[in-house]
Structure formats: C-alpha cells, structure tokens
Design a protein around this nucleic acid. Structure first.
Lengths: 137, 137
DNA sequence: ACCATAGTACGACACTCGTCATAGTTTGAG
DNA sequence: CTCAAACTATGACGAGTGTCGTACTATGGT
C-alpha cells in the first residue's frame, strides 16, 4: 500500500477506503465552498500542504472541522510531520471509486471554460450561514 | 435554440442557461437524494417524464419543491402537456457548462463499479431532516 | 356548467450544519 | 522543565432547508 509519512501515528484517525464511502457523503463534503477551496488548493499544489498552509477565510477550529469532513469522506489523507498535520489529495483512489467526479469539480472550480459572463469565481452563494464579521465585539 | 414542447406557456417559469448557474447552486441541487433520484430516473427513461410519473418517497408538494430547485439549477427543462408538467434532462447543456459532472453523478448513482461491499444503493444517509412517520397524529 | 386531475404556493416546524470562542493536547525547541 | 506552535475537541448559536398539510389555480372531460 505504501504510506507517505509515518506508517502509524496514534494521533491520526482512520482513513476510509473511498469505495466504502457513500456517494451521499462525498457530495455533502463537496457542497461546502470552504472544503472545495481546500481541495482545489490541494489539487494545484506541487506538494502536500499543512493545515495552516491553506488560504481560508474561517477560524482555525472551523478549518479543523472541514478537514475532518474531507478525511472521513475519503477525499484527503492526513499524516503528521512534527506538530504539523499534512494533507494530500486522494485523487487516484477517489477517481476509482467515483470516476470523473472529483476531476469535474476541480475543473469547474478553477476554470469554467463553459462559462459565459463573470469569471469572478465568487462561489460564495449561500454557504448555509454567513455570520461573517459579527459586528465587532 | 429549438424548444421542445409549446414554445411559450405562461405557466412555465424561465429556465436559466446552465452556464450562468454557479457551481455552488448546481452542487446544492445535486446533494439531495430525492433530487438525484429524479435525475437518474430521468437519465434512464426513454422519454420525458411527467412530475407524477416519478417514484419518489415524498409528498406532492415536496416533490414540486425539488423540481423547482432542479429547474432553477439548469438541470432539467419543464413544459406543459395538458395538465401534466413534463420533465427532461438538460444533459447536453449541463455537460457543456460542467463537463463530466452530471455524468459522474448519474454513473455513481446507478452502478458504482468501483464499489466493494454493498451495492444496496441505500443512499439515504442523512438527508437533512427525516420527519418520516411523525408518530401518527 | 361541474368536477376530477395535476401541480403550485404558502406557512409552519424540526433538524442539520457551518461558525466561532475557549479549553485541552502533543510535539519541538531553548 | 518550560514555553511556544499547531491543531483538535466541545458547546453554543443562528441560519438554511427538507418536510408536510392545506389552500388555490388551471386544463380537460362529461
């Protein structure tokens, strides 16, 4: 199977096989803009990226939550390097379980050749709850 | 552009061009199991299907809501024939706006070649709110 | 005309989920 | 040993949405 980082780390929760993850769960993971941002950044990165290395507009704890959702959906693999948690896209494995799905998402996210009007990439449509900038405090 | 049914019907709300629909909105439409069921049934049907012709486990009013979401996401086209509202999959147009996306979903929904264990197709994972069988009344 | 058929619209309700703040844990360096 | 860095876990809160029932509208047939 060949792992990347340390073969076994007590801090690392188990990673499911993407083929065992229901489509429903994968789509629920993909529907959040922040999580899709993580995936596309990962897809475009040359190397694996540590949790703190992403450009995300949410707090650290929220980011942790999103990483967990992605990991449990079988979309990313995580392993520790020192105190940093590294993330890698499980592109190949996901591709075998859901052919074309992840590619289509990533391509649509960063490209939109079919698009007509704005290429603004302002994907922040609803996002469930905004709560952005809670009027100071 | 060649329409299918009656060229103009006051009862029919406007259909957006799939290329103008944000990816976010499309994914929000695709994440619901009932809506995906509509799409796959439509993908496998030989002809267009009327709203009442689908096998769905929700009430009529709820189904109406789902059809609306799909239409506004540019995924289906609706037109009246008598009192029946017909539905057709906008496969080609969606394919141009989001290459491979719809195909991947439909394929994963009805097939799962990559799958290992259960082919149970019990896609009903969370579904947001169940409320099924409200303990009588 | 009258009524059945086929859907839509509206309002209410419950439940899920994204968000943050705070506290806790583990590793690595000094 | 102590402290900083990097995350994770928990609890609370608010917003969005899937669900239903009921009321309403519009064809089509008798």
């Amino acid at each position: 199977m060949s792992y990347y980082g340390p073969v076994s780390d007590a801090r690392i929760p188990p990673h499911p096989d993407p083929r065992d993850v229901p489509l429903q769960q994968v789509l629920e993971a993909l529907v959040d803009p922040v999580r899709r941002s993580i995936l596309t950044q990962l897809a475009h990165a040359a190397d694996d990226v540590k949790c703190g290395g992403f450009d995300l507009d949410v707090s650290t704890s929220t980011a942790t939550h999103h990483f967990k959702v992605l990991r449990e959906a079988g979309l990313i693999r995580q392993y520790y390097v020192g105190t940093s948690r590294m993330n890698s896209l499980r592109g190949d494995e996901v591709g075998k379980a859901f052919p074309g799905l992840l590619d289509a998402i990533v391509a649509a996210e960063s490209g939109r050749r079919g698009q007509r009007r704005g290429t603004s990439s302002a994907t922040t449509r609803s996002g469930r709850s905004a709560k952005r900038t809670p009027s100071v405090a």
